[in-house]
């Protein structure tokens, strides 16, 4: 009675773990190397499934790119060399972090420009408010007196 239940239980527990095998396994000498490889492939974009990096993508082209990155890393290439080699084949598109150059300058500068525009707007509002203060939109003594009379409930002073 208990055995089938136990078997079913273990199947449920371990079934998915057994079937979900990683599609490709790379071996590294050190943890740092593994981390470096992972960082590298997380920053490269898959040309086929365009909103995924090659670390997450199952597309064959992503596997080819991971293999190439791994191979080059094993041969002692630097990160820049690996990314450069892939960019030479697939174009700037595969970089998630575009390089700062003339073509991408506006892209990188946009946040700074937006903040500056915001500061200008705030400064403009503040300056205008100050200027209004100085040019005397505030109440004169006579007006203030009248206002306090109205607030005190003396309706005889109301103009309307």
């Amino acid at each position: 009675m208990l055995r089938p239940v136990l078997i079913a239980f273990f199947l449920m527990m371990y079934g998915p773990a057994v079937t979900a095998e990683p599609s490709d396994v790379y071996s590294f000498d050190t943890q740092q190397e593994e981390q470096r490889f992972h960082n590298l492939i997380s920053e490269l974009r898959c040309p086929k499934c365009q909103n995924q990096n090659i670390a997450d993508s199952n597309a064959p082209i992503s596997k080819d790119m991971r293999d190439e990155a791994y191979q080059m890393m094993s041969d002692g290439a630097s990160d820049e060399e690996i990314v450069g080699a892939l960019v030479a084949r697939f174009g700037e598109f595969v970089r998630y972090k575009p390089q700062v150059e003339r073509r991408t300058l506006l892209l990188w500068a946009t946040p700074v420009i937006a903040v500056l525009i915001g500061l200008l707007v705030v400064a403009g509002i503040v300056i205008r408010a100050r200027r209004n203060d100085e040019t005397g939109t505030a109440l004169t003594d006579e007006e203030r007196e009248r206002a306090s009379r109205i607030l005190a409930g003396d309706s005889s002073d109301r103009t309307s």
Binding site: P47, K48, I61, D64, E68, R89, F90, G91
Partner: peptide, 12 residues
């Protein structure tokens, strides 16, 4: 093995 394809940047 898709070597030339890879070097050409073939993605589909």
């Amino acid at each position: 093995r898709g070597r030339l394809g890879f070097d050409l940047g073939v993605y589909g």
